[in-house]
Amino acid sequence: MNLIEWKKPGFNSSLSELDLLQNELSKFFDADFMDSRFFGRNSVPAVDFAEDDDNFYLFMDIPGVDKKDIDLTISRNVLIIKGEKKNLKNVDQEKVYHNEIWYGTFERSITLPDMADDSNVKADLKDGVLVVTIAKKESVKPRQIEVKVN
């Protein structure tokens, strides 16, 4: 009678379970520790990026941040957003029972598409959301071409 080694379906690797576990652990330690999964889930605030015919739009959730604590710079099509989220002032004799709110500095740099006009940028802060509007270069905007029929 022959004994055939049992293998999990779809498990063709020669690695043992233990090796696989070791790989998973290594992945964990190889990960960038500044990654938002590990520390300060808000220290790299989430952004959305969108476009319409005329502009690009960047949205960043930064609740509790003052306009004066945000620093926006743009050079060579790279937009850098730096800021600080300050701890709300502590009232005298206040006891904190539970805090999930993160405070500290944050920074994010975003490379803009080539067709962004970095000399035409507007920023607005509303309801804790930063909205940066970057115009598209005139030359890349869709335009209507009139067809003449003779």
């Binding site: 959730d61 004799q93 206040e94 029972y97 539970h98 709110i101 804790g128």
Partner: peptide, 18 residues
């Protein structure tokens, strides 16, 4: 959220951007 209190009041703060 954050929950804190003084002897007279309880304060609750919730982050709701947008």
């Amino acid at each position: 959220g954050k929950i804190s209190s003084t002897k007279d009041q309880i304060t609750l703060q919730l982050e709701m951007p947008g």
